[in-house]
Amino acid sequence: MLLVTLAACGAEPERSEVPSAGGGKKASAEVENEIDQYIESVGVWAKCMRKEGFPYTDPDSKGRTEFEGDGRKAKTDPKFTAAHKACEKHSKPVPEELERRNAPKLSAKEIKKRQEYSRCMQEQGSPDFPEIDAEGTEVSQEWDQNTSGAKRASRICEPILGNPTIPPSERKG
């Protein structure tokens, strides 16, 4: 019995891997640890906001917290702005995997629309616009939306998303 236990302890555990933002893979335990650290930071942020007088709930398992009061009134309160600024040091960016898990599932039609919009943006003056993967998610990539090409492409491509600023008949391409 002892030999079996020792042999099991010495074996490399099988770990599934998930894509990381850098294109590599992270072990699922590493991803879960990153998510746990994020949720913990949200809890510290919520506690800070409560200390400043603004009642936020502790985060749920997805890192979401809620304001237990009149949000519209709080957002116009200068004390809220000061509290938010004081507590922002506890904020961490949402891990990519958690964003993926929390994202709503898109229909095939919506994914196709996002992919078409991405191609349009790239072809109409914003070649650095992010690609859209098979799940409808932007492939991590920074793009400069302030260039004249990006602004022109946005005007031209908006109708694809259902925002008719320039009719499709007037688009180049």
Rank of each mutant, 00 (worst) to 15 (best):
A29Y: 15
A103L: 04
A8Y: 08
C157L: 03
A86G: 04
T147Y: 06
T165G: 06
R119L: 13
A108Y: 14
N146K: 10
I39E: 00
Q145S: 15
R171Y: 03
A21H: 09
E66N: 13
T137V: 15
P95C: 01
R15I: 14
F129G: 10
W143N: 06
N163V: 04
G173D: 12
E88P: 07
A46K: 01
L6F: 13
T165I: 04
G10P: 08
K89G: 08
C87Y: 00
K85N: 01
C87D: 00
P55F: 02
G136F: 03
E142M: 13
R171M: 09
T147R: 02
C48P: 03
G69P: 11
D144P: 08
T5S: 13
G149L: 01
N163A: 05
E131D: 12
E32T: 09
A27K: 05
D144Q: 09
A108V: 15
K47Y: 05
G10Q: 12
W45G: 05
F67S: 01
F80G: 03
G63K: 00
C9G: 13
D36L: 11
P78E: 08
G23C: 02
T57I: 06
I160L: 02
E30F: 03
F80P: 02
N33R: 14
P167C: 05
E68V: 13
Y117G: 06
R64C: 06
E142T: 14
A21F: 11
R50Y: 01
R119H: 12
L6N: 14
P127H: 09
N163M: 02
D144E: 07
M49S: 02
Q141I: 11
V44N: 02
G71L: 07
G173T: 12
P13R: 11
L161P: 09
T137F: 12
F129T: 04
V94H: 00
P127I: 11
P167S: 07
K112W: 08
K113V: 15
V42A: 00
E68I: 14
G162D: 00
Q124K: 11
E14Y: 10
G22H: 12
Y38C: 01
R114G: 08
G10I: 06
S148P: 12
G24E: 07
E40N: 10
A27V: 10
D36T: 09
G24C: 09
S28M: 15
A11W: 10
Q122N: 13
Q141S: 11
E123Y: 08
V18Q: 08
S140D: 12
P167F: 07
S118H: 02
E131M: 13
E32I: 10
D133Q: 04
P164C: 13
R152H: 07
N146Q: 12
G63W: 00
L98V: 00
A21V: 12
P78L: 09
S148H: 14
T81P: 05
P95F: 00
K92T: 08
E138D: 10
G173K: 07
A7V: 10
I156M: 03
G22S: 14
